[in-house]
């Protein structure tokens, strides 16, 4: 079994289940949208959004929804203990991690495709002024958050307190992603957009992603052995 084949098989399996039930996609999207609306209550004054609130709201919605999606995805693997069945196959274990990671990233990217226009529309944020840079920040931030999240959600499958532990562990560790994401996006929302600053944060996100994906691939196998 090659690495890529395994990752693809796991991704395809998750995709098949999700196409059938749609549960995680719909609940995640609904939750993300609710988040944005709740923040609107806090950040809209007299019909006008607070200046610069868009970037923060977008990222908080993505990260909260991400936590929910991670929990649900691995709840599915816990039921019937299929995560153990996956670990028992001769496929490279790190490839199983990559498959799950790609699934989470795809889900969050789908959520972002809905959230970005929504935030742009509701908060009058010029999110589409620099589409490529915005896509880079969102994509890299999502990968960084999901790389740590997938590993932690996977290892917490065997813990009784996983629901509360996941956010407790995940958010402090991904703080650099949150900061880089929010500040990078804010830089793009200024008029005129501050491209050098955005690029600086993109650089931070790239290095964060490289370090944490490597670490996760390295520690997945020993962390998953009980």
């Amino acid at each position: 079994m090659s690495f890529a084949t395994t990752a693809f098989l796991v991704l395809k399996k998750d995709f098949t289940i999700e196409v059938k039930s749609g549960e995680i996609l719909y609940t995640t999207l609904f939750f993300a949208v609710s988040c944005v609306l709740i923040f609107a209550i806090a950040f809209v004054r007299e019909g006008q959004p607070v200046e610069g609130a868009g970037a923060g709201i977008l990222w908080i919605a993505v990260l909260f929804a991400g936590n929910l999606a991670l929990g649900r995805t691995f709840e599915r693997e816990r039921y019937g203990e299929t995560v153990r069945a996956l670990l028992l196959t001769p496929a490279p274990r790190a490839a199983i991690y990559v498959g799950k990671l790609l699934g989470i990233v795809a889900l969050l990217v789908a959520a972002e495709c809905l959230l970005v226009p929504m935030v742009a529309f509701l908060f009058d944020a010029p999110l589409f002024a620099r589409p490529l840079l915005l896509a880079a920040i969102l994509g890299l931030g999502t990968v960084g958050f999901a790389s740590v999240g997938t590993l932690f959600a996977a290892m917490l499958v065997r813990s009784r307190t996983r629901d509360v532990m996941l956010p407790i562990l995940l958010y402090p560790i991904t703080v650099p992603v949150i900061i880089a994401g929010v500040l990078g996006t804010s830089a793009l929302l200024q008029s005129p957009a501050d491209e050098p600053v955005a690029l600086l944060w993109i650089w931070l996100l790239v290095s964060f992603d490289v370090v944490f994906v490597t670490l996760a691939l390295w520690t997945f196998e020993p962390l998953m052995t009980e």
């Binding site: 399996k13 098949t16 289940i17 059938k20 039930s21 599915r76 039921y79 019937g80 203990e81 299929t82 153990r84 069945a85």
Partner: peptide
């Protein structure tokens, strides 16, 4: 195992 290692959605 006692848990059946099957995806019930499939």
């Amino acid at each position: 195992a006692h848990e059946l290692h099957l995806y019930t959605e499939l």
